[in-house]
Structure formats: C-alpha cells, structure tokens
C-alpha cells in the first residue's frame, strides 16, 4: 500500500523526526541534546561551516610556522601583484601579503574566541541571575542590560578604544564590555520561562539549592541557545575587531586582518589598483563569518524539529507529481493514485 512512501523514505534517510508531535514541547529535548552532535555531522550546512572554521583554526595555529616570510619584514618591492615568489603579492610597504593573512588569522580568531567566551560566561551569569532571582535583583540587572543595549554600540566602541592604550587586550576588553548584553537578555527571558516549569518546582521541593538548580536543571535545557550565542559572539568580535583596527584604533604594529586592511587603505591600495592587498584579509573575515553563521543555522535546524521534518518531507514530495507538490492540503500518495 505504502511502498511508495517507504522507498521515498529510504532515499531520504537523512534525519530523525518525531512521529506525532507531542503536546508538550520539552519532551524530545534530551534526545536532541545527546544526539545533537550526530545530527550536526549529517547536516550539510554544519559540515560546510565546520570545514571553513576548522580550516581557519588550523591556519591560525600552524600557519605562523609555515609561512614563507616574516609578515613584519619588508621582503620585496612595493605593491607587486601575485607571483610565484609572493603568491598573494606584496603590500604598500613591500611585505608579503600571504604571510600577513596567515599570521593575521591568529589574532583575529583569538580575539573572536576569547571575546566569545567572556561574553557567553558573563551573559549566562547576569542573564540567569536576573531571570531566576527576579524582583529587585532582576530590576537592577535588567536596567543594566537595557542601558548597555541602548547605548549605540559603534560610537561606544570607538570612544572606549580611543581612550585605552592601543593593543590586543584593550580591544578584547572593549568588545566584551559592549557585547554581553544581548546574550544576557535572551538567556534572562529563557531562564524566566524555564524556571516556571514543573521540573524546577520539583527540584525546589526535594531541596535543591538555587545555584545547582540554575546550573544543573535550567542551563542544560538552553545549551543550544548558549552555543548559538557563543558562535554569534565570536562572529561579532572578529568583525568588530577588524572594524576598530581598520579605523586605526588598534595597535597598527600587530598583524591581524583588520590591521592588514588598515594598512592597505593607508597605502591607497584601491587607488593604485592593488586589489590583492585587500581581498585575502577581507575574504577571510567574510568566510569565517559565513562559516559560523552556517553552524548556527544548522544548530537551529537540528534543534528545531519542525524545520527538520519540513525538509525531510519536502525531499519526499519532490519525487511526486506536480499536482501533489503544489497542494496546500494533506498530501495523498497512493499507488496508481485512486485505488
């Protein structure tokens, strides 16, 4: 009777979906938590994103030992286009662009991961405390979160960066101070809704302490948000660091993607047509951002069963007559259609 469906299923054997969506949503969460890594491995978006990110992490870790030249040394003539000697050409002062790009990955990714970690931890601490404690603690912390959110980010970044001594850690400090609030707000509201769940009340009645309830009962149930928030923050930090350095607010002697672009701009790369000094660092920033975004989309897809089953069903319906596909009603699949 339904062999058509079964064959279609075999062809589309990609992911698991829940049979009859349960009435109360937290039901399948545990399975998702334990199976998330497995599902991510099967997800094409996650694979692409992870490939890009892992590639750049390897570049950042190993690159400096492999590069042909010291990125801070003048090793050739100014603005020479890509050649066998200098694969990505040289910049306005005669430094090797390939070496600069590879070495720059370290500073950019390090900033990203350090700021991402700080922002995530601060976000969890402040957001969960506000959401769980409520009352006056929440009033105070929410006000703080809102103030940081309301202050226009870029001007604050620039003002802070201008006052602090230029350097790697200053930028990390500035980005962390301005970056934690959004995650805090999301986690606060999530905590507020989770703390109303009966399993929290149940933990209170058996005598669990507040801290343990927050960390062991509530936090595991919002890991997908935390992880997505972390990747988002990493992305933000890499972009913002590049932006600040491009504006000349970093330490210009430090080799990073943002500084590479700053020097390219300073040396009028665009005017003299030296596109090769801009593309490698610019594209790297874009690619890393793309990679992290893909991972985040994949997390969303994997942790949201509706998105998952939609894709699965779509792939089965694609093999059906056009009439069925276009219908908004329940699809009817029968052998010989109309038995």
């Amino acid at each position: 009777m339904s062999s058509s469906v079964n064959t279609a299923l075999e062809n589309a054997q990609t992911e698991v979906s829940t049979p009859e969506p349960p009435k109360n949503q937290p039901v399948r969460k545990a399975k998702r938590a334990s199976g998330v890594v497995g599902l991510l491995l099967q997800n094409r978006k996650a694979a692409v994103g992870a490939f890009i990110v892992v590639f750049y992490v390897l570049v950042a870790v190993l690159g400096p030992y492999l590069v042909p030249y010291d990125p801070t040394q003048i090793v050739g003539r100014r603005h020479t286009p890509p050649s066998w000697e200098h694969w990505f050409g040289t910049d306005g002062s005669g430094k090797d662009v390939l070496s600069q790009t590879v070495v720059g990955a370290r500073s950019s990714l390090a900033t990203g991961f350090i700021v991402g970690s700080i922002v995530t931890v601060v976000g969890i601490l402040i957001g969960m405390t506000a959401g769980y404690m409520r009352g006056r603690v929440d009033d105070f912390l929410s006000t703080l979160i809102n103030i940081v959110l309301i202050i226009p980010g870029l001007p604050l970044l620039i003002v802070l960066a201008a006052f602090l001594p230029a350097g790697f850690w200053s930028i990390i400090f500035v980005l962390s101070v301005t970056g934690w609030a959004w995650g805090s707000r999301v986690l606060r509201s999530q905590t507020m809704s989770l703390r109303e769940k009966d399993f929290v009340a149940s933990a209170v009645t058996v005598g669990e302490g507040k801290l343990r309830i927050m960390l062991r009962e509530i936090l595991p149930n919002m890991m997908s948000i935390v992880v997505a928030g972390f990747f988002g923050a990493v992305n933000y930090a890499i972009g913002a660091q590049a932006g600040l350095e491009f504006l000349g607010l970093g330490n210009p002697s430090n080799v990073s993607w943002g500084n590479n672009l700053y020097w390219a701009q300073n040396n009028s790369a665009m005017l003299v047509g030296a596109w090769w000094t801009l593309i490698p660092s610019g594209l790297s920033i874009a690619l890393v951002a793309f990679g992290f975004s893909m991972i985040n989309y994949a997390i969303d897809e994997v942790t949201n069963p509706r998105l998952r089953s939609q894709r699965q069903t779509a792939s089965i319906l694609k093999k059906q007559p056009a009439k069925v596909r276009r219908s908004r009603a329940t699809p009817v699949l029968m052998e010989g259609n109309g038995d």
Partner: peptide, 9 residues
C-alpha cells in the same frame, strides 16, 4: 493534516 503526515490510502 500537515506533513510529515501523508495519506497513503
């Protein structure tokens, strides 16, 4: 009924 539900007969 919305997919993933399908009428098969």
């Amino acid at each position: 009924l919305q997919p993933p539900a399908i009428i098969t007969g």
